Simulated assay, not measured.
Amino acid sequence: MRKARRRRRLSMTSLIDVIFLLLLFFMLSSTFTRFAEVDLDAAGSGAQVAADTRPLFLQLSPDRLSLNGADTALEDLPATLAERIAGAEAETATPLIIALRGEVTAQRLTDVLVALRGITGLRATVLGAG
């Protein structure tokens, strides 16, 4: 008569080692990208806005960008704004109102804010979509 073979228990140690090695492999082979940072200043202290300064109005939609009613390309926006605020006084900031129209993505708004970042003498306010 044959002896009944005993089943050996499966060792968890080797399974844990394999999982640890896979985890280590994926952690080391992953690339972690750093996204661009955009400083968003809360309302409060900042450059003064003179009472007689007329604000600029920027309408931002998913496929269109217009400054005071004139269509503008995103690449041309910094130069156009720099021309408009060139005559403003140094100690006062020119207000820029950014109105979101339609389904504007966060990436589109970030692209505009990054383009505005290098312009001095400008105080931007973003209005919600409506």
Rank of each mutant, 00 (worst) to 15 (best):
T110A: 13
T80C: 04
A115D: 01
L28A: 13
R123N: 08
A88L: 05
L116N: 04
L22V: 13
L28W: 08
T31W: 09
R9S: 12
R7K: 15
T80S: 13
L60G: 03
L127H: 04
I97V: 08
R64E: 15
P55G: 01
R9F: 11
I85N: 03
I85S: 02
V38N: 06
T120Y: 06
L81M: 07
I119A: 01
L113S: 03
Q107P: 00
R84I: 01
M27N: 10
L23Q: 05
A51W: 05
A124W: 01
L40F: 13
E37W: 12
D76T: 11
L24V: 11
R123V: 01
D41G: 14
S61M: 02
S66Q: 14
R84C: 00
D41P: 12
T125V: 09
A124S: 14
D71R: 09
L24G: 09
L65K: 07
L58V: 03
E89W: 03
F20Q: 08
L65F: 05
R123G: 01
I119C: 05
R6E: 11
P95I: 02
E89M: 07
D111C: 02
F25S: 12
S61I: 01
D17N: 14
S29K: 07
L60Q: 06
E37A: 15
A88D: 10
R117V: 02
T120K: 12
D41N: 15
L23M: 12
I119H: 03
L28N: 09
S11M: 05
A36Q: 14
P78S: 05
A93Y: 06
G44V: 08
T53I: 10
V114N: 06
L67E: 04
R117W: 07
A42I: 08
L96W: 01
V104T: 03
A115K: 14
L77I: 03
F57R: 13
I98S: 01
M12I: 13
P78D: 04
A99W: 00
R123A: 10
E103R: 11
L60M: 08
A93F: 04
R8M: 10
P55M: 00
T110I: 07
M1F: 09
L65Q: 05
D17A: 15
S29G: 08
L15D: 04
M1A: 13
